[in-house]
């Protein structure tokens, strides 16, 4: 026996925005058991898409300095490997390089991480996932980009499917040049990042929140198959 549907799908208009909208994200008119009808928009109702707000640093200078020191000493890296550089991240935890010495630890979930390492070229498909992970991280958050691919496109500079400049899509704190950079270069990048955080310049999350519209326009320009809320944390 077929289950009776209690909703009616509303076909979207043929505007440019809805060109790649997936059927499961169409708006639908639901009839509740009590007979009332209401409209459900999966993209807005099932997710919270409030815009990010900038969070001001602690007003007491000394406290903020101390907290920045703590942040710089305890960097939790999101294990999100893109491109060829993720193979350079794993040796960091081995006895030869041992990034634990500097308080760098890997964390498997974006909620608990502070640092996202974009380790190489990003195709448009991966960029969508990277942005989603980045937005789920909690402020203050930092981004480190490895390799020439993230700086100017590298050897994929004329490719139809890989981005050229990462800093148009998310605020980047430290670039590590190379193709690919060795783990030693990564450690140097961590030192540079620590210096930035201690100086109070690691405000990428606030920068993202303040220039949110610009970043979002850039992202939506290339990710046409958006199919998620504008900001999902």
């Amino acid at each position: 026996m077929a289950e009776e549907k209690n909703y009616k799908i509303i076909q979207p208009d043929n505007s440019e925005e809805n060109k790649f909208l997936k059927p499961e994200n169409y708006k639908r008119e639901v009839t509740a058991p009590d007979g009332n009808t209401f409209i459900v928009d999966p993209l807005n109702d099932y997710f919270c898409d409030a815009k990010p707000q900038p969070h001001a640093p602690n007003t007491i200078k000394v406290v903020e300095k101390f907290l920045n020191w703590a942040r710089s000493q305890s960097i939790w890296v999101l294990g999100f490997g893109t491109g060829c550089g993720s193979i350079e991240i794993y040796p960091l935890m081995t006895p030869r390089f041992d990034a634990y010495r500097f308080g760098v630890q890997q964390r498997p979930t974006p909620r608990q991480s502070n640092l996202m390492i974009i380790s190489g070229y990003l195709s448009v498909k991966t960029l969508k996932r990277a942005i989603r992970s980045y937005e789920q991280m909690q402020s203050p958050k930092f981004v480190m980009a490895l390799g020439s691919c993230t700086i100017n496109g590298g050897m994929y500079w004329d490719s139809y499917n890989t981005i050229n400049r990462l800093d148009h899509y998310m605020p980047v704190d430290v670039y590590v040049a190379g193709c690919m950079p060795r783990p030693e270069a990564l450690l140097a990048g961590f030192m540079e990042l620590k210096k930035r955080i201690r100086e109070g310049k690691g405000e990428g999350a606030n920068q993202y929140a303040e220039n949110f519209d610009w970043y979002k326009a850039n992202q939506k320009k290339i990710i046409k198959d958006w199919n998620m809320p504008d900001y999902n944390w």
């Binding site: 500079w157 890989t162 050229n164 320009k221």
Partner: peptide, 8 residues
């Protein structure tokens, strides 16, 4: 690529 991906 030049039109879409903001070449540096």
């Amino acid at each position: 690529s030049e039109e879409t991906y903001f070449p540096r």
